[in-house]
Each structure stands twice: as C-alpha cells, then as structure tokens.
C-alpha cells in the first residue's frame, strides 16, 4: 500500500473497531479457550473504566493518539485466567495484573497487525495495568466508545476506545 491510511474519526472507523473486537475474540479463544460475544457498542462522554482490573495501551498511529482499555470484573478475569493457566484465582494479585498486561498486549498486537495489513500505521506500545475502581477523566478530550462483551455464566467485560 502506498501511503499510510489516515485515521479520521477512530470511534466511527469500522476497521479499527472490528480489529479490536476480533483481537479480543481471537486472543481469548486461542489462549484461554473462552468464547466471548460483543454486544451493542455505546459512546460515553466521560471515560470510566468499568471493571476492577484493566489493561490500558496508548495507541499511536500517525497523528492519532488514543487509548484502548480492556476492563474486567473480578469473576470474568478469574474465569479467563483459570482457563488459560489451569489454576484457580480469587484475588487480584501481582500474577493477575501480569496476566492482564499480557492479554492486553496480545489483543493490541493482534489488532495492530490486522490494521497495519490494511495500510494503517499503528506502533507497538507497552500496556499499563490499573486495579481498583478508577475513573480517568482528564486523560483525554472527547468521548469513549465502549463495547461490552459477554461470556458464559453471565460474565462480562468491556473494551473502551478513546481518542484525543
């Protein structure tokens, strides 16, 4: 492809949103044998990470700066890690934080690869893991696109995409 594809409004960019949805589904089904289904996305004015443990990555593609956050409630992440590592988890400890960082890394890497094959120019970045209830209101200007995902046993988690 000749020039890097421009990201005009990433929250409305179907390629970008689909790449992250596919990245989540593929990562969880391959690594953790966990099937997940995206639900109806919505836009939120004030970004609030939804779960009790979140992995966040700063996205850089050309002039675009944004974040992708994947947020899990405790029962969801414990179930995923039990499937992935073969051990039960009952508290958010260093091991859980490390695993959330690695999952975030894989999801971003999968999406980035798909997007760059389409001509985008996403760069690799390092994830940050946040725990506890958290609101990040000053991090960005604009809105957040929230995509809830459901898993078996009525469990759920969220991805949240923000752009500056």
């Amino acid at each position: 492809m000749s020039a890097a594809q421009k990201v005009e409004n990433p929250l409305l960019d179907k390629n970008l949103v689909n790449a992250f949805v596919d990245g989540v589904k593929k990562t969880l089904s391959t690594m953790a044998m966990t099937e997940s289904t995206p639900k109806k996305a919505f836009v939120e004015r004030d970004f609030k990470a939804k779960g009790e443990v979140s992995g966040m990555i700063g996205m850089v593609a050309g002039n675009m700066r944004g974040t992708i956050t994947i947020s899990f409630e405790k029962p969801s992440i414990f179930k995923i890690l039990e499937n992935m590592l073969g051990e039960p988890y009952s508290e958010i400890n260093e091991e859980v934080r490390d695993a959330v960082g690695e999952l975030t890394n894989m999801i971003y890497g999968t999406a980035k690869t798909a997007l760059n094959e389409m001509g985008y120019a996403f760069e690799m970045a390092i994830p940050t893991v946040i725990t506890g209830s958290h609101e990040i209101t000053s991090y960005h200007k604009g809105a957040a696109l929230v995509i809830p995902f459901s898993m078996d046993d009525n469990l759920q988690f969220f991805i949240e995409i923000t752009v500056e």
Binding site: K26, T30, M106, Y108, G109, T113
Partner: peptide
C-alpha cells in the same frame, strides 16, 4: 514468540537464524 507478525519482522528473524517463529496468541 511474539505479537509482531509483519513481514519485516519475519525477515529479520530468519536472517538472524531463527528456526521458527510463533505469533501470539497461540495454542
């Protein structure tokens, strides 16, 4: 083992003498 799967990385790894290359996520 890596999350990177673009062609340039594969070439770099092969030139360095890697026996194979697995892209995350894997099973």
């Amino acid at each position: 083992v890596t999350a990177e799967s673009e062609q340039k990385n594969v070439v770099e790894a092969v030139q360095a003498g890697v026996n194979d290359y697995v892209v995350k996520p894997f099973n």
